[in-house]
Nucleic acid binder design. Structure first.
Lengths: 135, 135
DNA sequence: CCACTTGCGTTGGCGCCACCAACGATCCTA
DNA sequence: TAGGATCGTTGGTGGCGCCAACGCAAGTGG
């Protein structure tokens, strides 16, 4: 049903970008820009992914100098993750490329319909995001 | 972007159904019902999945008696795959359950909006499906 | 009739991704 | 001060999509 479209999206991103794991990288980078400097666990919670996977992604990103890990002084368990300048640049590039992918994917729809669709998707996502929390 | 929703959908299906690989099974069963008895390669092409994966899924389904493989008399390379009565029954059950999942997922939307959304998704999917072929 | 090419089913491996279990370190609280 | 709770990390598991290679059958041109 809906998975079909997600698969198409994944395939297109894989085609246009080198077929490495850009999607999770982008998710983390975008999350960092949106939320600022956060701990890894918070990041995972807000992005809806597991702590262990966040670790792997951050290892990659840190290795590429896109992200900086520093132990929080107030709570030495936590790692405060910060976006570097290079990371911000890389995120911008990814946004451009993924925007192109999205355009290609939604090409058969008019501009108004595209907006309509994304609005509907975001609404269901937001509503869904609240559901499991407060329970 | 869109992958988020797909993930939600996957999680919901995993919650409501036993977290085994029901999704691909359903895809194959639904494809069989839609296309009738077809060869495995045709099935894979129409569903947009790899031949090797179709093999694995068919092994499972055949083992559960939901599907029957028989070598085509006219072209002995091909395996004609047929839905058994049990397979059709199982498909119906899955349709009910997945319908419930879809309802839960799209609950925050009104009925009209739900229809609108699925229509938009199907349109982009259909348009996309033609694109890679004629090139 | 014999290569040659094409398509089919099957096997095996790789990579991405979501999930779970466990551990040491650290913080918080009773 | 002892016991839980949280954090980062490691390791393993399973689903899923993709590719390469094999053996076999069908068609095609010489």
């Amino acid at each position: 049903m809906i998975n079909q479209l997600a698969l198409r999206a994944a395939r297109l991103t894989a085609d246009l970008l080198g077929h490495t794991s850009v999607r999770s990288d982008f998710a983390v980078l975008a999350g960092l820009e949106e939320f600022g400097s956060v701990s890894q666990a918070d990041l995972g919670r807000r992005l809806g992914m597991d702590r262990s996977d966040v670790v792997a992604i951050l290892n990659r990103l840190q290795n590429d100098g896109l992200v900086q890990r520093s132990t929080d002084a107030l709570d030495r368990r936590r790692n405060t993750v910060t976006l570097t300048a290079a990371g911000r640049r890389h995120l911008n590039e990814l946004e451009v490329q993924l925007g192109a992918v999205q355009n290609a994917l939604l090409k058969p729809l008019s501009a108004g319909e595209q907006q309509q669709l994304t609005s509907l998707l975001l609404r269901t996502l937001d509503a869904e995001r609240d559901c499991p929390g407060p329970n």
